[in-house]
């Protein structure tokens, strides 16, 4: 009888439990120790191995709906690149990515690295329409697609772009996204064509679809907030100066852990209730 009543439990109770299990760890700052996995460490180690002055292309291929997952990893990677004096080329294949990219440049690059010069240490080329066609063009000629940055500064005259003609001149490409166009298109049209190492930071939903590309076609992948938390853990461990900065990825792992335990509990109880009520009916 009890199990049958449990099967008819109003699902709003489950929503309430999940909400509480997310809110309480947030309020009490429950942190979980992060052990970096090889798939995330691959990106970190690659950035560590690049000599200062190497070009890294960061593509913002996401929208506001996935900001809580993607932004922490984008912020961590940008901090890492600029701390290592790498030259960062920003662009976006998603129209919504341009606004997010500009606000990220304002809040991370300009605020935390005020000595870095636009056009010399980094450049924001913004969004270009054309999906994988954009990658296809810049694989052979970057300036055919990007004549200026978003402020109208000519790309060819930038000190940052002195040695850059096409995609092959990039030492690493990192796409933040997971939808279309995104990491998969960067692998297909840039990594496999120009033989440039490609890495990605994606939403958790799209991570299983991208795992098959690792390690041959993707040197690393940050899957969801867990990937972001692992990257933040490695960054703060290697560069303690970043420790006081907000670590949104690591802070989100406490609520993640508790919420997962709650959902697993409901899955176990739900199955138990189903099988026990079925056997009860069979006996009756």
């Amino acid at each position: 009888m009890f199990w049958e009543r449990l099967l008819r439990l109003d699902r709003r109770w489950i929503f309430l439990f999940v909400a509480v299990s997310v809110l309480l760890p947030l309020l009490f700052n429950l942190e979980c120790h992060q052990v970096p996995t090889p798939i995330v460490r691959g990106i970190f180690d690659k950035l560590e191995s690049l000599p200062p002055g190497s070009h890294v292309l960061l593509s913002f291929d996401y929208g506001p709906s996935t900001v809580p997952e993607i932004s922490p990893m984008a912020h961590a990677v940008i901090r890492h690149c600029l701390e290592r004096d790498l030259k960062v080329v920003f662009m976006a294949l998603w129209a919504t990515g341009q606004n997010l990219l500009t606000s990220t440049v304002d809040s991370v690059v300009k605020l935390e690295f005020p000595h870095k010069v636009n056009g010399t240490d980094y450049a924001n080329f913004g969004y270009k329409a054309g999906n994988q066609g954009v990658i296809n063009v810049i694989a052979t000629d970057f300036y055919k697609m990007f004549t200026t940055d978003i402020s109208g500064m000519p790309a060819r005259t930038m000190p940052l772009m002195e040695d850059v003609e096409n995609m092959s001149d990039m030492s690493l490409i990192i796409s933040f996204g997971g939808g279309f166009p995104g990491i998969k298109e960067w692998v297909q049209f840039a990594g496999d064509v120009a033989h440039v190492p490609v890495a990605g930071g994606c939403t958790a939903v799209s991570a299983p679809l991208l795992y098959p590309y690792y390690p041959q076609q993707l040197i690393g992948l940050m899957g969801g907030i867990k990937g972001a938390a692992e990257y933040e853990a490695m960054l703060t461990h290697t560069y303690p100066k970043f420790d006081p900065l907000p670590k949104r990825g690591m802070l989100a792992m406490g609520p993640q852990t508790v919420a997962h335990l709650v959902i697993m509990f409901f899955i176990v109880v739900g199955n138990l209730a189903y099988f026990l009520s079925r056997s009860h009916k069979a006996k009756a």
Binding site: T66, P68, K226, P255, I263
Partner: peptide, 14 residues
């Protein structure tokens, strides 16, 4: 992974 994604969005809203 889907659960993780949805919880991340909930964390973002909270």
């Amino acid at each position: 992974y889907t659960v993780m994604a949805r919880i991340s969005l909930l964390v973002g809203r909270f």
